[in-house]
């Protein structure tokens, strides 16, 4: 039941990027400084986010990353899927191998939990997170 540092720090960095990019490349170093996150973690997360098409990167001086899409169209679910993979609460048992007890728990517990979690992360966009961030940090 853990969200890894990749997911935690990667999401914070995406929020930071949404706020500070304004159509320009933002260096990972500046995100790392503002967010007090080690650069190593960010490099790891951003190579995955770039591969998934959520950010574009440019190397060299003046380089960095910017969002490849409108933050209102990127959900937290999409970002966490790239950084964390499947967030379902239990590993799936193949239906054929499932006992009647396991099927019952899937129907009564695991599916409702996954649906609940999905509702939270699919309904929250990067734009929502950035606006909440600005409010909390009085930006």
């Amino acid at each position: 039941m853990k969200i890894s540092t990749k997911g935690r720090y990667g999401l914070r960095a995406m929020i930071d990027l949404a706020i500070h990019s304004n159509g320009e490349f933002v260096s990972l170093g500046s995100i790392a400084r503002r967010q007090n996150i080690s650069l190593n973690y960010l490099e790891h997360a951003f190579s995955a986010l770039k591969k998934a098409g959520f950010v574009t990167g440019m190397s060299g001086s003046g380089g960095g990353y910017m969002l490849a899409e409108d933050p209102a169209s990127i959900t937290v679910q999409m970002i966490l899927y790239v950084l964390e993979g499947d967030l379902s609460v239990v590993d799936r048992i193949p239906l054929k191998a499932e006992t009647p007890l396991q099927a019952l728990l899937r129907q009564q517990l695991w599916e409702p939990i996954n649906a609940n979690v999905k509702e939270v992360i699919a309904m929250t966009t990067l734009k929502d997170m950035a606006e909440e961030y600005k409010k909390m940090n009085k930006l």
Partner: peptide, 28 residues
């Protein structure tokens, strides 16, 4: 770990996720 506890928006998101899980666990 980051010294931003009071202004961390992602912590609020993790809380909503955690509540989404535990509300089912505690309701059955």
């Amino acid at each position: 770990e980051s010294g931003i506890y009071d202004t961390c928006v992602t912590r609020l998101l993790w809380k909503r996720i955690s509540d989404a899980v535990e509300s089912v666990l505690d309701g059955v």
